[in-house]
Design a protein around this nucleic acid. Structure first.
Lengths: 352, 352
DNA sequence: CGTTCTAACGTTAGCGATAACGTTAGTGGG
DNA sequence: CCCACTAACGTTATCGCTAACGTTAGAACG
C-alpha cells in the first residue's frame, strides 16, 4: 500500500540548500525569507509533493489550519450545516474534520474534546442538547463556537431566530383565518425547541387564540414524534384547523397521520413546518415552512471561529440570524371564500 | 477559554515514580509492566484526567486508534453509512474522524489523503465516483478500505449487491404483471448505478420484456433527476406501467412528477426505488424499494480495516453483501383483479 | 554456584515541525 | 568611518510520545 515516504521539511530544506527554519518560514508564508529563496523553496516543495505534517505542526505549538466540528449527523439539518461549514472553511484555506457525536452521550466526553484539541485550531460544536460536552468544552484550550445552542451558550455562538420564525409561522396561519391552531413541540431539551414553543404561546396570548393546553402536543423533532402528536391532536374533541410543527420532520410525520386519517392537506388542515429542509419541496403538496439560514449560519460560525483563532475578540459574541417565512402548498385560507384572496397581514381581531 | 494544561505522560510517570516508558506501556496496555504498577499508573492517569496526545503518538510512529473516513455527506445514504461506521468503530475502541469531500473534487486530492494519514491509522473511503482520490489513496501509507466502489476497486472493499437487488426489483414488478417497465438510471459515473442498469437490461432480455431504449431515462441519483426522468417517461407515446428508479431519491422525484401529471401511485403506475432510506417510510404511499444493508456494510468495512491495521491480510478482499426486496405501497398488480390477491413469486411467462 | 534466560523496568534517540534566540551582513545616519 | 538597526538567515531546544536497545534482578537449571 505504500511507495515512497512523503517528503519532510528537512528534505526540502536540504535540497534547497537552506536551513529547516527558513524552509518552514517559506512554506508558512512568514516573513524573514528573501523572495528568491522563498520561490525556490516553494518550487521544490511543490515538485516533491510536500504536504505539511499537521500532527508535528500541532505538537510543536503551531497551527494546523484544521477546524474541528462536533455534531450529531443524524438529521439533514446538521448534515447540511456541517457541509456549509466545510465549504466556508475550505474557502479560508482551512480543512474541516468532523467528529460524529454518538446518540447517547455516555462516552467520557472529555476525551473527544481533548482529541479534537490535539488536532484542530478551533471547534464548532452543534450539540444535541445541554449535554455534558458543554462543561468539557469550557476546559478546552482552543476557541469554541457553538451553533444553535440558544442564548444561554457560554461560548460565542451563532443561532437562527427561532422565536421570530415561530411568530411568523403562527401569524401566517392566523392571517389565513385559523384560530384553533395545534402545535407540535420539538425536543425541548433543545433551546430552539423551547423558543419555538414560547413564541407559539406568546402569539396565542397576544392574538387571543384558543389557549387550550391540549392543542400543544409533545413531539421530538422526529418524523414518528410528529406522526404520533398529530394523531393526538386529531383525537381531540375539537381538533385544530391548522398545525404548526416545530420542524419539518415532525410536519412530514403529521401530514402522514393526517393522510391516514383521511384528512386532506391543506383543504382540511393546514400544516406548517420549520427548517426548510430539502424534503419540504420534495413532498406533495410542498411544505410551507420557516427557513433557517443554514449557509449564513455556517459562514458566521466559521468567521467567528477564525477570528477567535486569530486572537481577535469578536465584538458580537452572539450572532442571531433572521429566519424567513416560506409559503408553499400546505397552508390555505380556512374558509375558501370570505374576503377572497390573501388575508390581511395585520392581526385580525381576537376570535374567542 | 483555558484552565490547567492537560497532563502529559511525563507527569503521570513522575507522580507514579516510574519511567515515562513504563507509563506508556501501562496506558497502552502493553506487556512489560507488573500488575501492581500498571494499576497504580492507570489510577493516577484516571485521576488527573490524562488523555493521550494522538498527534504525538502518531508522530512517534505509534497508532492513534483513529480511523479516518472520506465521504460526501450530501446524501442520507452516505450520512447513515458514516454513522454506522462511527458506532462500530467506537465499539472497537477506535474514534472516527470524517473528512467531508467537496462537491467538485477540484482540490489537490493529495493533501487530504496525506492529512488523514498523519492522523488516522486507516481510512475508509466512500468516494463519489472514479475520482482522482483513488490514485492518491493508492500512495497512502496506511490501509484503505473502500465502500461501494464496485468490484473494480483496487482496495479491499465492501459493497452491496446492487446487481441482484436490481434483479429483484424488476422481478417484483414482473411478478405483479408489469411488462412495460421504465428505468431511471443513477449517476453512471458510479459503479453501483451501472450495475443496476445492467441488471435491469439483463432482466429485460431474459424475461423478454419490451426492450424499448426510451424506457431507460437518464437520472442522477437525485430528486430532480428522477422528477425530470419520470416526465420524459410520461411523455413517451406508450409510457411504462411501472418505474424502477435507481435509488429512493429518484423514486421520490418520479412520484412527484407522476402526481403532478395526475397519475396515481400505485393505481396508475407502480414505482420501486433502491436503498431503503428513511424517506421511504415517511412517504405516502410508502415506497417499495430494495434495502441496502447499511449497518452490515459499516460493520464489514470497519472490521476489514481493523484487520488490515493489525497487519492481518483479510482473506476475502471484496465483501459483497446481500440486498433485500422491501415491498410497501407503491407497487401494485397491473390488473387489479385477474388472479386476485398477490402475484405468484415465480416469473410468469414472458409477455412480449 | 555459575550460567542462561526472561520479565520488568530504564535510557536514548528521534518522529516533523516551530519558538526563541543567536548570528551575520548590509544600510543609513552622524 | 563607526555605530545602531534591521532583514535574512541559522542553531538549539522542545512539543508528547514511542521504538529500539540497554540494564537489572530473580528464576530455572545442570
Amino acid at each position: 500500500m505504500a511507495s515512497r515516504l512523503p517528503p519532510t521539511l528537512a528534505e526540502i530544506a536540504k535540497i534547497a540548500g537552506v536551513s529547516q527554519m527558513t524552509a518552514s518560514r517559506a512554506v508558512n508564508n512568514r516573513s524573514g525569507v528573501s523572495e528568491r529563496k522563498r520561490e525556490e523553496i516553494l518550487r521544490i516543495a511543490d515538485e516533491l509533493g510536500y504536504v505539511i505534517n499537521r500532527a508535528a505542526q500541532k505538537l510543536s505549538g503551531g497551527r494546523t489550519r484544521i477546524i474541528g466540528v462536533m455534531a450529531q449527523l443524524h438529521t439533514p439539518f446538521t448534515s447540511d450545516l456541517v457541509l456549509g461549514i466545510g465549504s466556508v472553511a475550505r474557502a479560508a484555506d482551512y480543512e474541516m474534520l468532523v467528529y460524529s457525536l454518538p446518540d447517547a452521550d455516555r462516552q467520557p466526553p472529555g476525551s473527544v474534546v481533548d482529541m479534537l484539541q490535539q488536532i484542530a485550531d478551533g471547534v464548532i460544536a452543534i450539540l444535541p442538547f445541554e449535554s455534558g460536552y458543554l462543561d468539557t468544552l469550557a476546559q478546552a484550550h482552543i476557541p469554541v463556537v457553538t451553533i444553535d445552542q440558544g442564548m444561554e451558550s457560554p461560548f460565542p455562538s451563532v443561532l437562527a431566530d427561532s422565536y421570530n420564525g415561530a411568530r411568523m409561522a403562527v401569524q401566517h396561519l392566523v392571517d389565513l383565518g385559523h384560530r384553533r391552531i395545534g402545535f407540535i413541540t420539538g425536543n425541548e431539551r433543545l433551546e430552539s425547541a423551547r423558543e419555538r414553543r414560547q413564541a407559539f404561546e406568546f402569539m396565542r396570548r397576544t392574538l387571543g387564540l384558543h389557549p387550550d393546553p391540549e392543542l400543544i402536543a409533545i413531539g421530538d423533532f422526529m418524523h414518528k414524534g410528529g406522526y404520533d402528536a398529530a394523531n393526538r391532536l386529531l383525537a381531540l374533541p375539537e381538533p385544530p384547523t391548522a398545525i404548526f410543527a416545530a420542524n419539518d420532520a415532525s410536519a412530514v410525520g403529521a401530514i402522514s397521520a393526517l393522510r391516514e386519517a383521511g384528512r386532506r392537506v391543506p383543504e382540511d388542515m393546514s400544516v406548517i413546518g420549520f427548517d426548510d429542509m430539502p424534503i419540504a419541496v420534495q413532498l406533495h403538496p410542498q411544505l410551507s415552512t420557516i427557513r433557517q439560514p443554514l449557509p449564513a449560519m455556517a459562514r458566521a460560525a466559521v468567521n467567528l471561529l477564525l477570528a477567535l483563532i486569530a486572537g481577535i475578540d469578536a465584538p458580537s459574541q452572539q450572532i442571531l440570524l433572521p429566519t424567513q417565512l416560506i409559503v408553499r402548498e400546505t397552508t390555505k385560507a380556512l374558509k375558501p371564500a370570505r374576503s377572497a384572496g390573501a388575508a390581511r397581514p395585520t392581526a385580525p381581531p381576537p376570535g374567542g
